[in-house]
């Protein structure tokens, strides 16, 4: 890895400004999330996505503050708002892949936060 310079860093800034959101599933993996079982959820999601060849990235992230609802899983897919599911377990993680990622459904009684719509339709 060559060392970053001032100009490289500017390229990152431009990339940040363009702000292209890609499809991603984020799993909260701070101590609070891990204590609630996030590691298992992360593995299940990773396997499922690999097996089905869905090409969606599974990303670890920190704690967003809603510790009471851990493990938290944020799902950002095209044409749907960014949705944060809380108290996710193994079975529900599969439901997220099945119904939210593939069928584009939103799942009742598990959503703890919804961010503004993502994608082109606004």
């Amino acid at each position: 890895m060559p060392k970053l310079t001032k100009d490289n860093l500017e390229a990152y800034a431009k990339k940040a400004a363009a702000h292209k959101v890609k499809d991603v599933i984020r799993v909260g993996m701070s101590t609070c999330g891990i204590a609630a079982g996030a590691e298992e959820v992360y593995e299940v999601l990773k396997n499922e996505v690999r097996q089905r060849n869905l090409g969606i990235e599974i990303q670890k992230c920190g704690c967003s503050g809603k510790c009471y609802a851990e493990p938290l899983v944020e799902v950002i897919v095209k044409d749907l708002p960014a949705v944060v599911y809380g108290k996710v377990d193994k079975t529900f993680a599969l439901a997220i892949v099945d119904r939210h990622v593939i069928n584009g459904e939103l799942l009742n009684d598990h959503i703890f936060d919804v961010q503004e719509a993502n994608g082109d339709e606004k």
Partner: peptide, 29 residues
């Protein structure tokens, strides 16, 4: 907490892509 729950803490690229180290750049240059 701007990046907590958003970026991958184990990946420096993730921080750079959200405008990381731009403050340092300003201070330095």
């Amino acid at each position: 907490l701007r990046n907590c729950g958003v970026i991958d803490p184990e990946n420096i690229e993730s921080y750079l892509e959200t405008g990381g180290y731009q403050g340092l750049k300003k201070v330095l240059f």
